[in-house]
Design a binder for these strands. Structure first.
Length: 211
DNA sequence: ATTTTCAAT
């Protein structure tokens, strides 16, 4: 079923290099997406799938994932073979970069057509989100609007990824310098991006008050 | 102080 996934586990060095949440991540011309797919049919039955992907041939990794979604999520658009009712899926992504504007809009559009699919996105770094009016910021807000939970990865998420997706051979996850501070900084930044309306309101209120 | 970004050579 997962024949399109080249290898199940990520080499340690690759994981560290691409998921490092440093301020200037020079030379990362690849994006990795580690995923967990939970499939539910009825109240009891539950199954898992996991793996990772990277962008290829100019195709962003998120769109690559969507392209293979029907293989990963059988019955997403129909009913379960057992006739117990509709299959539902919960997907969690851990991405080294947050999605670009185009991917965000495509994902949002896709999700609005698949109510039985829930998506949670963890990101290590924010992609082109420095400008206030960047389309990437718009895209992230769009994702939030359609119910995607987007979070910046913290220590526990890197730890989980290390345990789940990395060929770690019993080695323990060693956090890099600044992991926590960077995560906190990016997390605040993301929160500001996703809650622009309150700050706008404040700005308007201050303006009205002549402050 | 400034540095990057799902490449293109």
């Amino acid at each position: 079923m997962l024949s399109f996934v080249p290898s199940v586990l990520l080499p340690k060095k690759k994981f560290i290099y691409h998921y490092k949440n440093m301020r200037w991540a020079r030379g990362r011309h690849e994006t990795y997406l580690c995923f967990v797919v939970k499939r539910r049919v009825g109240p009891e039955s539950l199954s898992f799938d996991f793996g990772h992907l990277r962008n290829r041939n100019g195709c962003h990794v998120e769109l690559l994932f969507l392209r293979h979604l029907s293989a990963l999520c059988p019955g997403l658009w129909g009913y379960g073979a057992t006739g117990q009712g509709r299959v539902s899926y919960s997907i969690t992504w851990f991405c080294s970069w947050s999605p670009c504007a185009n991917c965000s809009f495509r994902i949002a559009q896709f999700l609005s057509q698949t109510p039985n699919l829930r998506l949670r996105i963890f990101v290590s770094r924010l992609y082109f989100c420095d400008m206030e009016d960047s389309r990437e910021r718009e895209g992230l807000r769009m994702l939030k609007k359609v119910g995607v939970h987007i979070t910046v990865m913290s220590y526990k998420d890197y730890f989980y990824c290390w345990q789940t997706f990395v060929a770690r051979k019993q080695s323990k996850f060693k956090p890099w310098d600044g992991l926590h501070q960077n995560s906190v900084r990016l997390s605040r930044k993301l929160n500001r991006i996703l809650q622009p309306f309150e700050t706008e309101d404040f700005r308007d209120a201050f303006k009205l008050l002549g402050l």
